[in-house]
């Protein structure tokens, strides 16, 4: 009976296509974490406020706790695990690691994904724009100072 309520979902995550049998009520975040083992995507509130679960869906920053997996079929989904290629950190990951843009690291995957979407649209941001752009992700440790600095450094490195 439980099986009959499940349905086949096709997800394209970090460039790899997956076919999964999941219940339609399952969020994208839960499917990424539980079914695909991609635990880099964090859950901090499960009500759309903290931003820890942010992933990219066709390049747009999306809260994976607010989206059902069945809604995410088709587009290219990128999680924090998909950022580095061949073990080489991308420029945003590097900037956060080098500029002390993290402490406990729990907000970090979400911050990195938001920074990606933000910098794609604002390649040369001012400090104010960074503060606005990163506004949807909570960090309790850093006071945001080094997150802002890391994002600015990443923008610079991309040039």
């Amino acid at each position: 009976m439980a099986m009959s309520s499940k349905q086949i979902v096709e997800l394209n995550v970090n460039g790899i296509p997956h076919q999964l049998l999941v219940e339609p009520r399952k969020t994208l975040a839960d499917v990424l974490r539980d079914d695909l083992g991609l635990t880099g995507t964090k859950l901090g509130c499960e009500h759309g406020v903290c931003g820890a679960c942010t992933v990219l869906v066709d390049g747009r920053a999306i809260r994976a706790c607010l989206m059902f997996a069945v809604q995410a079929q088709g587009p290219e989904i990128t999680t924090v695990e998909g950022l580095a290629s061949d073990g080489e950190l991308d420029h945003i990951q590097k900037a956060f690691a080098e500029n002390h843009g993290l402490q406990c690291g729990y907000c970090t995957p979400g911050m990195l994904m938001t920074a990606h979407a933000f910098l794609a649209e604002n390649p040369e941001p001012t400090r104010e724009q960074i503060c606005e752009g990163m506004n949807g992700n909570l960090c309790r440790c850093t006071g945001y100072q080094n997150i802002i600095k890391s994002t600015a450094a990443a923008a610079k490195a991309a040039k």
Partner: peptide, 21 residues
């Protein structure tokens, strides 16, 4: 000095309690 655990935290490899299988 840059902290030693930065790498695992920016790659999503750092495991927190709820991540353990």
């Amino acid at each position: 000095f840059v902290r030693g655990d930065g790498l695992e935290k920016v790659t999503g490899q750092a495991r927190y309690t709820a991540d353990l299988a």
